[in-house]
């Protein structure tokens, strides 16, 4: 990896450690409020990885939607339920599930990552100039040859999810 820019590599290592460390904090902490904070840390690391992958719009959306909205939603859910007082029993069948997760990781390693690593040729031909910009993404989302139908379907899905969430969580006064 002699051709890797040192600061780029350092940033990648730091963001990866933030992501994975936060994720481990999410699944191990007893106090779920702290788990939410760890989730924010992990999502922030993912936003950093998007920056490194030259997708700044996705990084901004990650911070706005995930850290700004979904993490706050989780905070509300933790506080509205009795999650903070049921701190004693964290896991069920922890070793079986841990073994399953490790097995999944090994499968992913052997199936996807090792072949990619084998065939990896450090090609400097990946040019920054050819990377699509945020403007192109915006145009593609409303282009009739692009993603306009999935875009509208996503809008309908979000509306339906919002109405559904309100209806499900509403207190019935009967």
């Amino acid at each position: 990896m002699g051709d890797v820019n040192f600061f780029l590599g350092l940033a990648f290592v730091v963001f990866s450690l933030i992501t994975l460390g936060g994720a481990v904090g999410v699944v191990t902490t007893r106090n779920l409020f702290r788990g939410t904070i760890w989730l924010m840390v992990s999502l922030f690391g993912v936003a950093g990885l998007y920056i490194l992958l030259e997708a700044p719009f996705l990084a901004a959306v990650q911070v706005l939607v995930y850290i700004g909205a979904i993490a706050i939603l989780f905070t509300f859910a933790v506080m509205l339920t009795r999650s903070l007082t049921q701190l004693s029993d964290r896991y069920n069948r922890v070793w079986v599930n841990l073994g399953g997760a490790v097995l999944l990781f090994v499968f992913l390693m052997m199936g996807v990552i090792l072949p990619t690593w084998y065939n990896w040729t450090p090609s400097p031909s990946i040019m920054t100039a050819t990377v699509q910009s945020t403007t192109d993404l915006g145009i593609a989302l409303v282009d009739k040859n692009g993603f306009v139908v999935p875009f509208e379907v996503a809008s309908i899905l979000l509306t339906a999810a919002m109405i559904g969430a309100i209806v499900i969580a509403r207190e019935t006064d009967d």
């Binding site: 992501t19 994975l20 994720a23 481990v24 999410v26 699944v27 992990s42 993912v46 599930n97 841990l98 399953g100 997760a101 490790v102 999944l104 990781f105 992913l108 390693m109 996807v112 990552i113």
Partner: peptide, 10 residues
Amino acid sequence: AALFSIGTFG
């Protein structure tokens, strides 16, 4: 893959 496995465990 590591993040996915950690999430699966959770």
